[in-house]
Design a binder for these strands. Structure first.
Lengths: 248, 248
DNA sequence: CGTTTCAATATGTATATACATAATCGCCAT
DNA sequence: ATGGCGATTATGTATATACATATTGAAACG
C-alpha cells in the first residue's frame, strides 16, 4: 500500500512536497479513512513513500500536530486525535466595512464623550485594579438612514494617553485605536438582550426588542486598553464564523 | 544592537532556540517596539545574532508569517504587518459540558423526531441541491430544572444513513454525530431573536423575550451533514471568544 | 518473581548545504 | 529620459546528517 505514486504522472500541480504530504494526510483523516486512534505511518515510512527526506516529512507532521489533527508520541509514532473541541474563527470586521459590504452608505456619529476618573464599574469592565483616568465614548454607526449599531466604549487613558486629546468627531474610536495600539489579546462576549428605553431610542427600535450585544476587551502586553460594547438590533446583524480544521 | 546575548548567562530556561526566536520577535512586535511596517532583521542577521543556522531562523519566521504577524517579501525582507483583521477563536462546547461547568445537573429530552423527504426549506438550510431523506429532530437541554437550550436539527441521511436508525432518546444528536462523522468544515451564524410562542413555551420564558440563536452547518468532505439551530434564553447564555495572535 | 538496566526506536531539534524563485537595483543601449 | 536585461539579493524548499530525548520492550539481575 502506498499513499501516492512516487512518480506522479498525472497532476503535477506544482504543489510543494510539503503541501502534498499535508493535504494527503488531512484528507485521510477528514474522510474518516484513518479513524481517531489510528497510527499514521512512521516518518521513515512516509520518507520512503514520498521519496523525500525525513525533515520534509517531519515538518509536515509537526504542522499537523500543531494544528491538533494528530498527536505525536516518541518511540510510539503519530496518531489521529479524537475529534477536537469544536472551535470556529469569528471574524470581527470593522463596522464601516460591514456596512459598505451591504452596499449601504456608512456614517458615524459621536453622541457623547466624557473624560473622568474611573468608577468602580469602569474598572470592572476594563479589568483594571488601580484607579485612573478613562475616556467614555458613546457613538452611533449608521447604514444609510438607519442606525446600525450603538457603541459604548471605555478607553484606559493610562495605556493610551493620546486618546485623551482626540475628539472622535470624525473618526470612530475603533479605527483610531487600531494601528495606534498593537493589541496582544482580546476577549469577546456575545449575548442577546432586550433593548432598554435608551437603547431603543438611540437605535430607533421598539423598547424591549431583541438586540445582539458584542462586548470586547482588549489588552496590549498585559495592560487593559479598551472595553467596547456594540449593540445591534436583531434584524440588522448576524455574526458569521467559519472553521476548517488545520488549513495549510 | 543585538536581540539577545549569544551566550545566555542568565535564564537557561531550556527553551529551544526556535521558541526563543519566536517569542523574542513576538514580544518586539506586540510591545510596539517594532511598529507595523518595520523591517525585521534579515535571516542572515538573525543567524548571526542568535548564532544559529539559517534554517532555524527561517522556520521561526515562516511560522510568524503563517500566524499573520509578519509579512515576508522576497528580495526585500520581512516586515511587521498592519494589525490583522480581528479574529477570535470561538469555542463551541458541548452543551452538556457547558451546563456541568455551571455546576448544574444536565438533562436531555427529545421532543420530536421525523424522517421525511427534504422540503425546499430543509435543502436550503442544509445547502443541498438534490432532494433526499432527512431526519428532523427537536430537543431540549436542561440545566437543573430549567430549560437551557432548544435544539432544532436536520441531519442529511444521504450523508449519515445510520442516523435514520437512531431514536436519539438517550443521546443528543450532537455527541452522537461527533466521533461518528468527521467534519471538515463548519459555519456558524449567531444572532439575536425574539422568542415566538412555540419557543417561549418550550423554554419556559415569556413570548418575545430576547434569545441568542446559534446556527451551525457542518460539512464532511464537501457533503452537507447537519444543520442545527440552538436557541438560548438571553439570560442563560453568553458566548465567549478569546484571541491571542500567533501563540507559539 | 519483581525490579533494574540497557539497547532499540521514533520523534525533536539543529546544522550545513544546495538550488529555485521572485523582486529589485543599476547598467546599458536605444 | 526610458525601456529592457542581467546581476544581486532575500526568501522558499529540500537534502543529508548529527545528536538529544523520551519511551518502550526485553534482557539481566537480585
Amino acid at each position: 500500500m502506498s499513499l501516492v505514486e512516487t512518480d506522479d504522472i498525472e497532476g503535477g500541480e506544482s504543489l510543494s512536497l510539503h503541501q502534498r504530504i499535508l493535504s494527503d494526510i488531512r484528507e485521510k483523516i477528514l474522510s474518516g479513512a484513518w479513524a481517531p486512534g489510528h497510527r499514521i505511518p512512521f516518518e521513515h515510512e512516509l520518507t520512503a513513500q514520498y521519496n523525500c527526506s525525513r525533515m520534509t516529512v517531519n515538518k509536515a507532521l509537526s504542522q499537523l500536530a500543531k494544528a491538533g489533527l494528530i498527536e505525536r508520541r516518541r518511540r510510539s509514532g503519530s496518531f489521529v486525535r479524537q475529534p477536537q473541541s469544536q472551535a470556529a474563527v469569528l471574524e470581527l470586521h470593522d463596522i464601516r466595512i460591514e456596512v459598505e459590504a451591504l452596499g449601504l452608505p456608512y456614517r458615524y456619529e459621536r453622541l457623547g464623550r466624557v473624560k473622568r476618573r474611573s468608577s468602580a464599574e469602569d474598572r470592572a469592565l476594563l479589568g483594571l485594579s488601580a484607579p485612573g483616568q478613562v475616556l467614555a465614548l458613546e457613538s452611533l454607526h449608521f447604514a444609510g438612514e438607519r442606525p446600525f449599531a450603538l457603541e459604548k466604549r471605555l478607553i484606559n487613558l493610562s495605556a493610551v494617553a493620546e486618546a485623551g486629546e482626540e475628539e472622535f468627531l470624525d473618526i470612530a474610536p475603533g479605527p483610531w485605536l487600531i494601528g495606534r495600539v498593537p493589541w496582544s489579546e482580546a476577549e469577546h462576549r456575545i449575548r442577546a438582550m432586550a433593548a432598554d428605553d435608551a437603547i431603543a431610542d438611540a437605535l430607533d427600535i421598539e423598547a424591549s426588542a431583541p438586540c445582539l450585544v458584542v462586548e470586547r476587551r482588549t489588552w496590549s502586553a498585559e495592560h487593559p486598553v479598551t472595553h467596547v460594547r456594540f449593540i445591534y438590533p436583531a434584524e440588522s446583524h448576524t455574526l458569521v464564523a467559519r472553521f476548517t480544521p488545520s488549513q495549510g
